[in-house]
Design a protein around this nucleic acid. Structure first.
Lengths: 108, 108
DNA sequence: CTCCTTATTCGACGTTCGTAGTACATCGAA
DNA sequence: TTCGATGTACTACGAACGTCGAATAAGGAG
């Protein structure tokens, strides 16, 4: 099936359904960590504007992993898909976790 | 090869060599998370005394993943292998990370 | 010494993962 | 309308993962 656009809405877990192990797994990949770091600096960003060197289909896969883990939220606008960190939801469910991980990701 | 005991020492990464993505990956498995939670409550514990329902060889595998990620330290004493959290090393390299993850792991 | 406990290595199995190529649908501009 | 840009779905493949059983080795108790 091609891109469903308006027919099939994007799947996002509820705040209370976010699973810690899924979050940790989602963040344990270098490409996805780069995506999250980029989103931490830019509140909202289109898919194709991330500094990663992977094929577009691979990028789609990583965005889905992050989205289904509850780390990011995606919304469609025209032809683009905008991604943003679910900072509030994550801070509410796992206080301070995201900040610590992002801080740790900058260690040498 | 059977257990090398004294010949091949256990492999532990140096404090500065601990990689965040390896840590997150190590903690993204439920069995290993249970191990870490148990070690957080008990300072040192023998391998066979953890509340997990897996085969001994599987347990050995999980301990190796945690050890090579730098999450735990293992030392041999007689016939037993004692495991402990590398709390100081982790706190020094990634301040607060372990505490946040452990705190998050208790969320309903 | 013999036996049991502890924990390992090895090999095997299914599953999941990261990656890419191809085809395709949508949008916007020329 | 045509065309390019954007991003996805599907498919496939090799690698890594979680799991286990069997064989093995070392230590401790009898």
């Amino acid at each position: 099936m091609p891109r469903p656009s308006r027919s099939a809405p994007l799947v996002h877990p509820e705040r209370d359904q976010i699973d810690l192990l899924d979050v940790l797994h989602a963040l344990s990949d270098s490409t996805r960590m780069t995506i999250v770091q980029t989103l931490a600096a830019n509140p909202e960003q289109a898919c194709g504007t991330f500094p990663v060197q992977v094929a577009p289909s691979t990028l789609t896969h990583h965005f889905r992993v992050l989205r289904e883990a509850g780390v990011i939220r995606q919304r469609e606008e025209g032809n683009r898909r905008w991604s943003s960190l679910r900072t509030d939801d994550l801070n509410d469910r796992y206080p301070g976790l995201l900040d610590r991980i992002l801080q740790a990701s900058t260690a040498p």
